[in-house]
Amino acid sequence: MKLQKIVEALDLMVATKNADLGAEVSGGYASDLLSNVMGQAKTDMLWITMQGHQNIAAVAALLGLSAVIVAGGSHVEKDALEKAERNSVVILTTDLPAYEVIGRIYALGVKNEI
């Protein structure tokens, strides 16, 4: 599923400038422990978190994630957005709680192969 479709369906805010929403989303991962995300999330996955530290941009770039959704109205640091823009990482935000975000994306048919 294209990232654009998920952004529209959940009415997500696009926090990074010049974001390319054409990426194909292959599945999803949810965690606020970045060390865990680094070991578990896979390329093209969508990552749902409450963390807004600049390292979310580094981890997303390292893994080649399709986008990061910072849920629950959580604050995203300015340097996180700058780092994301420099590395072509898309950061999306929403006031919806993480559980609700994940449930709605799953209902759209975005599932992992387990």
Binding site: L34, S35, V37, Q54, A58
Partner: peptide
């Protein structure tokens, strides 16, 4: 902090 951030900037 290392666990939360994955690495220390």
């Amino acid at each position: 902090l290392l666990g939360q951030l994955g690495f220390l900037p």
